Amino acid sequence: MDEGVLISAPGKVILHGEHAVVHGKVALAVGLNLRTFIKVLHTRDNAVLLNLPSIGSKLTWNVGQLQPLLPSFKGGHEPVSPRSEQLDLLRKFAGFSEGSQDTESQAVLAFLYLYLSICGQWTETELKLINSWAFQGEKVIHGNPSGVDNAVATLGGALQFQAGQITPMKRVPMLQILLTNTRVPRSTKILVAGVKDKLLKYPSIIEPVLSSIHAISQECQRILEASSAALSIDQFKVLEELIDINQHHLNVIGVGHPSLDKLCQVTASHGLHSKLTGAGGGGCAITLLRPDVDHSVVEAVKQQLVDCGYQCWETSIGAPGVTLHSSLSLPEDIINAFSNV
């Protein structure tokens, strides 16, 4: 094998606008500096190897096995949505049961769909093309995705999302946060349906709450784009107030959870401000870290959250998008992780 290429893309969190965005309001999605890395290598044994160490999956196919599948995936140079018959063909080929939704099967199906669809067609590396193909992979996994995840992973930074339109923000300061996983599973579909039911039942109550969340997103965007230098402490305090207000609104529309309440209590006891990110009902939350917060405070918060049974990462938002790396630009732990792949 040669040394190949190493590429990464950021994760994503919603800063403001969860659930309200489903009803035409503004949401802000930001790149998260917890990155997914992929190493692409040429092989000499006429094989396609897929190694996904984070989910314990390692598969190999001979190119000859994949060749008969190619005619079903040639659709021209532009990205195309996966058809149900194509996904059924891939499930049968990979030995997955019909309707399988586990992480490994979804990841493998997305890889095979993109590999077979792109194979022999990639003539440019423009971000638009990467984003378009990534969106098709999202469709394999989620069926009818919004396009936010793949757009943030491709473009990085921060994006405004409203009514299907995605617009990069003009300025994106790198803000330090804690990302905390409560480890409480939830169904996005059920939570979205619950908000819709509340809106239909109490339109004069819930619509103003969604409009307020919309206004929070707009005010947050105004602050982030307003300054050409680092944000002031006063601006950070406004961002903290917006976080608190939005978290209360999200509880009002029914997507809170006791695990998230506990998380907010823990961080508030140390003078920090948190809100859920994404669907709610458990899942993850973000905590804004002002630059004047002592690191010992951050460490104490992290330990207390871990003691609650949560997972906690200190990271940043506003991260760059898809990136081609040289070995010189990578931290040693990342180099070591790929040294034996």
Rank of each mutant, 00 (worst) to 15 (best):
L6W: 09
I7C: 12
S8Q: 11
A9D: 04
V13E: 03
L15Q: 03
A20R: 12
K25I: 06
V26T: 11
A27C: 10
A29I: 00
A29K: 03
V30T: 11
G31V: 00
N33G: 06
R35F: 00
R35I: 00
F37V: 05
K39V: 04
L41V: 08
T43S: 10
T43Q: 07
R44L: 07
D45G: 04
L49E: 13
L49H: 12
L50W: 04
S54P: 02
T60C: 12
V63H: 05
Q65M: 11
Q65V: 01
L66Y: 02
L66R: 06
P71S: 12
S72T: 02
G75P: 03
H77C: 07
H77W: 02
P79M: 14
P79F: 06
V80S: 10
S84Q: 07
S97N: 08
D102L: 02
S105Q: 05
Q106A: 15
A107T: 08
A110P: 08
F111N: 06
L112G: 09
L116D: 13
Q121A: 07
W122M: 15
T123W: 01
T125D: 10
N131L: 02
S132N: 13
Q136H: 04
E138L: 06
V140N: 07
N144T: 09
N144R: 08
P145N: 10
P145E: 02
P145C: 06
V148K: 00
A153F: 00
T154D: 01
G156D: 04
G157V: 00
A158S: 13
F161K: 01
I166Y: 00
I166K: 00
P168T: 02
P168V: 00
M169T: 06
M169A: 04
K170S: 07
V172R: 05
L175P: 03
T182S: 01
S187I: 04
K189L: 05
A193V: 01
G194C: 05
K196N: 08
D197K: 15
S204Y: 14
I206K: 15
S211W: 09
H214I: 09
C220I: 07
R222N: 13
R222L: 04
L224D: 10
A226L: 05
A226G: 10
S227L: 06
A230L: 08
A230Y: 08
S232G: 15
Q235D: 12
K237W: 01
E241I: 05
D244P: 02
D244C: 09
Q247Y: 12
N251R: 13
V252W: 09
H257T: 11
K262A: 15
C264V: 14
Q265G: 15
H273Q: 15
L276M: 14
L276E: 15
G281A: 11
C284G: 05
R290D: 11
V298T: 15
V306G: 05
D307Y: 10
Y310E: 14
Y310H: 08
W313A: 03
T315M: 03
G318L: 00
A319V: 01
L324F: 12
S327M: 06
S329R: 05
I335D: 11
N336D: 15
S339M: 11
